[in-house]
Design a binder for these strands. Structure first.
Lengths: 208, 208
DNA sequence: GTCTATATCTCGATAGAC
DNA sequence: GTCTATCGAGATATAGAC
C-alpha cells in the first residue's frame, strides 16, 4: 500500500529512480542543516518523505555515502558557478573579477543555502579518505579567489594584505550568508551580493 | 583572571571540585569542537581525562547542562570583553570604537577559539528553552556592534549600508577566525585583528 | 522498490557498592 | 568522587518476503 500520497510513475523507471534519489538527497540536506549529520537519523529522513528507513538503502550505500554526495556535488557546482562567473565577466581587471566571484559565491550561498551550509560545516563527519577528498575540492575552490587576490595585489590594485588572511576574511564573511539569509525576506540576493562586494572592496568608512 | 567567573580556592575540597569541573568542561569543549555535540560521546570525554563516564554525573546534571554552561559562560565572557574594550577605548568616535570592538572580538575568537566555535555552532543542539536563553545572550552581544554601526552611520562616518547586512558581514567574517586560527602559527593575534579591522573599515582596494 | 523483522552497537543516564 | 553493572532507547545496517 502506498502511504505517501504520491503517484508512482511506471513508465520511466530511470527518471523515477533519479527523482527518488533527489528527494532523499533534499530531505537529508534539510535535516542535516537543521540538526547536523550526527543529529539527523535516517529514520527521520525516510519518514519526512513517506517511506521506511531500510528503503533508503536501495538508493544509497550508506549514510556517509549520502553525505559525501551532498558535499562533493555542492562543492563541484559551487566551483563551476564561480569559475564561470569569473571567466565570463568580460574583464581582466582584478576588481571586476573579484566582484564577479563574490556575486556568484554569495548568490550560491543564498540560493542553495542548506547545501552550502552542510558543505561548509560537516567535513568533520567524514572519515579520513572522504575528508581528504572534499578538502582537496575546497582547496581548489579557494584557489579561484586566491588567484584573483594575488593578481590584484601584484598589480597594485589591492592593498598589500596577507593573502591567506584576506582570503579567510572574504570567504568567512560571504559563506555565512548560508546561515542567516532567508529568501522572500527584506533583502534580495542582489542586495546582499552587491552590499558584500562593496564592503569587501571599499570598507565601511565613508570616503573623505 | 580565571575564566569561569568563580572564586577558586586552592586547597579546599571546593577548589578541587572546581578544578574537576573545569577539566571536564575543557575536555567537553575540545571534543564538541572536533566532532560536534551529537558526535561527542560522554564516554570519550571521560576517557580523555582518565575517569569513567558515570563519574561525570557527580559534576554535571546532564550532557545538555554541560553544553549550556559552555555556551552561556562563553557568551557572557565574550560580551564582557567586547563591552569593556569599547568603553575603555578612550574615544567617542565610532571608527575607534568599532576598531576596539573588532580587536576584542577577534582576539577572543583566537584565544578561546574552541569555546567560541562551540558557542557559534551548537545552538541547534539545545532544547527550546535553553536555545531561547542563549539566543537572547547573542542578541544582546550583537547589539554592542549594532549600536556602534548605527552611531557611525548617523554621524556620516560610515557609509549608508543596511545595518543588519553590515552586522552579519562583520560578525561572519570575524567569527570565522575560530575556525582557522592556529596559535603559534605564521599570523599573530595582532596580525589578524589589525588586518580584519583594516579590511572592514577600508576594504581591499588601494586608495587612489 | 518498499516492506517487516531483526542483528548489532552505542548512546545517555541510573543504582548502588566502596 | 569514582567505580562496576545495567537499563532502555535509538542508531546504522542487513535479510528476505512481496
Amino acid at each position: 500500500m502506498n502511504t505517501n500520497g504520491r503517484t508512482p510513475s511506471a513508465s520511466t523507471p530511470l527518471g523515477a529512480e533519479l527523482d527518488r534519489r533527489q528527494t532523499i538527497y533534499d530531505a537529508m540536506v534539510h535535516l542535516i542543516y537543521l540538526k547536523g549529520y550526527n543529529g539527523a537519523p535516517l529514520r527521520a529522513v525516510a519518514e519526512s518523505i513517506g517511506i521506511r528507513m531500510p528503503s533508503l538503502y536501495h538508493h544509497f550505500a550508506s549514510k556517509e555515502d549520502l553525505l559525501l554526495e551532498i558535499m562533493s556535488r555542492t562543492m563541484n557546482d559551487l566551483t563551476e558557478s564561480v569559475s564561470t562567473a569569473i571567466n565570463e565577466c568580460g574583464s581582466d581587471e582584478p576588481e571586476h573579477r573579484l566582484r564577479a566571484a563574490i556575486l556568484a559565491h554569495v548568490a550560491f550561498h543564498a540560493e542553495r543555502r542548506e547545501e552550502a551550509f552542510v558543505a561548509d560545516s560537516e567535513l568533520r563527519a567524514l572519515d579520513a579518505d572522504n575528508r581528504a577528498l572534499i578538502a582537496s575540492l575546497r582547496d581548489k575552490y579557494e584557489e579561484l579567489f586566491a588567484q584573483v587576490l594575488r593578481d590584484g595585489r601584484s598589480k597594485g590594485i589591492f592593498i598589500n594584505l596577507d593573502e591567506r588572511l584576506a582570503l579567510n576574511a572574504l570567504l568567512g564573511m560571504c559563506s555565512q550568508v548560508s546561515v542567516w539569509y532567508r529568501s522572500g525576506g527584506r533583502l534580495t540576493i542582489d542586495d546582499v551580493s552587491k552590499g558584500y562586494s562593496d564592503l569587501f572592496l571599499s570598507g565601511v568608512l565613508s570616503p573623505h
